[in-house]
Simulated scan of single mutants.
Amino acid sequence: MAETEADKNTNAGTGKVRPHTGRRRNEAARRAILDAALRLLGEGDGAPVTVETIARAAGVGKQTLYRWWPSKGAVLLEALAESAQQAVSAPDRGDLRSDLQVVVAATFAGAQRPPVGPALRTLAREAARDPQLAALMREFTECRRAALREVLERGRERGQLDPGRDLDLMVDQIYGVFWYRFLLGHAPLDDATATALAELLLR
Rank of each mutant, 00 (worst) to 15 (best):
E3G: 11
E3W: 10
D7A: 13
K8T: 13
N11Y: 07
A12C: 02
G15A: 00
K16C: 08
V17I: 15
V17W: 07
P19N: 02
G22I: 03
R23T: 08
R23K: 14
R25Y: 02
N26F: 10
N26S: 13
E27T: 15
R30D: 13
I33P: 00
I33C: 15
L34K: 01
L34I: 10
A36R: 02
A37W: 01
A37Q: 00
A37G: 01
L41M: 12
E43P: 02
G44N: 15
D45Y: 11
V51A: 05
I54H: 04
A55T: 01
A57M: 04
G59E: 02
G61W: 04
K62M: 12
Q63C: 02
T64K: 01
T64P: 00
R67F: 06
R67N: 12
R67E: 09
W69A: 08
W69S: 00
S71G: 04
V75H: 00
V75P: 06
L76P: 06
L77A: 06
E78M: 08
E78F: 12
A79H: 07
L80D: 02
E82P: 10
A84T: 08
Q85H: 14
A87I: 14
V88H: 13
S89T: 15
A90Q: 12
A90W: 09
A90R: 13
P91A: 05
R93Q: 11
R93K: 11
G94Q: 00
G94V: 11
D95P: 02
D95K: 01
L96M: 10
L96Y: 07
R97S: 05
V103A: 00
V104I: 15
A106Q: 14
T107S: 14
F108V: 07
A109I: 01
A109V: 07
A111W: 08
Q112W: 06
R113Y: 00
P114L: 03
G117P: 05
T122R: 15
R125M: 06
E126P: 01
E126T: 01
A128Q: 14
P131Y: 07
P131N: 04
L133N: 07
L136S: 10
L136P: 01
E142F: 09
C143N: 15
C143T: 15
R144C: 08
R145Y: 13
A146F: 03
A147Q: 01
R149N: 04
E150A: 15
R154Y: 02
E157V: 11
E157D: 15
E157S: 13
R158N: 10
R158D: 03
L161E: 02
D162P: 10
P163E: 02
D166M: 10
D166P: 06
L169E: 12
V171A: 06
D172T: 13
Q173M: 14
Y175Q: 12
V177M: 04
F182I: 07
F182M: 10
L184I: 08
G185Q: 02
P188K: 07
D191K: 15
D191P: 03
D191W: 05
A192L: 14
A192F: 05
T193Y: 10
A194S: 08
A194Y: 00
T195P: 07
L197H: 06
L197R: 05
E199H: 13
E199K: 13
E199G: 09
L202R: 08
